[in-house]
Simulated assay, not measured.
Amino acid sequence: MAANQDGQACFAHSNAQLTPMVQIATECVVIVMALMHVTSSTEVVYTDVSAGYTGRMCNEECPVGWYGTNCSQECGHCANNSRCDPKIGICSDGCQTGWEGVFCAQGCPKGFYGNKCLLECTNCFEDECNTVTGKCTLGCTAGFSGYQCAQVCPDGLFGINCTDKCGKCSSEGQGRVCDAISGKCNFGCLPGYKENECKELCDYMYYGSGCKKCGVCKPGTTCDTFNGSCPEGCADGWFGDYCELSEPFSDEDGPQLALFLGFMISVVIIIMSLVTICLVLIWRREHLVEMESELPVKEKETPLIDRNGYLSDGEETFII
Rank of each mutant, 00 (worst) to 15 (best):
2 A>C: 10
3 A>V: 11
4 N>R: 02
5 Q>K: 13
7 G>Y: 04
7 G>L: 04
7 G>W: 02
7 G>A: 07
9 A>E: 08
10 C>L: 08
11 F>E: 03
13 H>P: 01
13 H>Q: 05
13 H>D: 06
13 H>R: 04
13 H>E: 08
15 N>K: 09
15 N>F: 15
35 L>A: 11
38 V>D: 09
40 S>D: 14
42 T>F: 02
42 T>H: 03
44 V>T: 10
46 Y>H: 04
49 V>P: 00
53 Y>T: 05
53 Y>C: 01
55 G>Q: 06
55 G>W: 00
66 W>M: 11
76 G>I: 03
77 H>Q: 15
78 C>D: 03
85 D>V: 08
88 I>P: 00
90 I>G: 02
92 S>D: 15
94 G>Q: 02
95 C>A: 09
96 Q>V: 06
100 E>A: 04
106 Q>D: 14
107 G>E: 15
111 G>K: 12
113 Y>E: 09
116 K>H: 12
121 C>F: 06
123 N>S: 07
125 F>D: 13
129 C>V: 03
129 C>H: 01
129 C>Q: 02
133 T>K: 04
137 T>A: 12
148 Q>P: 00
149 C>M: 04
149 C>F: 03
150 A>V: 08
152 V>S: 14
153 C>W: 14
159 G>I: 08
163 T>V: 13
163 T>C: 01
163 T>L: 12
171 S>A: 15
173 G>D: 10
176 R>F: 07
177 V>E: 15
178 C>G: 05
180 A>V: 15
182 S>P: 02
183 G>K: 06
185 C>G: 03
186 N>R: 11
186 N>K: 10
188 G>W: 08
189 C>E: 02
189 C>R: 00
195 E>V: 02
196 N>Y: 02
198 C>F: 03
199 K>Y: 02
200 E>D: 12
202 C>M: 05
204 Y>W: 10
204 Y>V: 03
206 Y>W: 05
209 S>F: 11
210 G>F: 09
212 K>E: 08
214 C>H: 01
216 V>Y: 08
216 V>F: 10
217 C>T: 06
219 P>W: 09
224 D>Q: 12
228 G>E: 11
230 C>V: 08
231 P>N: 12
232 E>D: 15
232 E>M: 11
237 G>M: 12
243 C>W: 01
245 L>I: 13
245 L>D: 12
246 S>A: 14
247 E>D: 10
251 D>L: 15
251 D>P: 09
251 D>R: 11
252 E>K: 13
253 D>G: 04
254 G>N: 14
256 Q>I: 14
258 A>Y: 10
259 L>Y: 06
259 L>T: 13
262 G>W: 05
263 F>Q: 12
265 I>S: 07
266 S>A: 13
274 L>V: 13
275 V>H: 05
278 C>L: 07
280 V>N: 05
281 L>T: 07
288 L>V: 14
290 E>V: 13
290 E>M: 06
293 S>H: 11
294 E>R: 12
295 L>V: 13
297 V>R: 14
298 K>V: 12
301 E>Q: 07
305 I>A: 07
305 I>S: 06
307 R>I: 07
307 R>L: 08
313 D>M: 03
320 I>E: 11
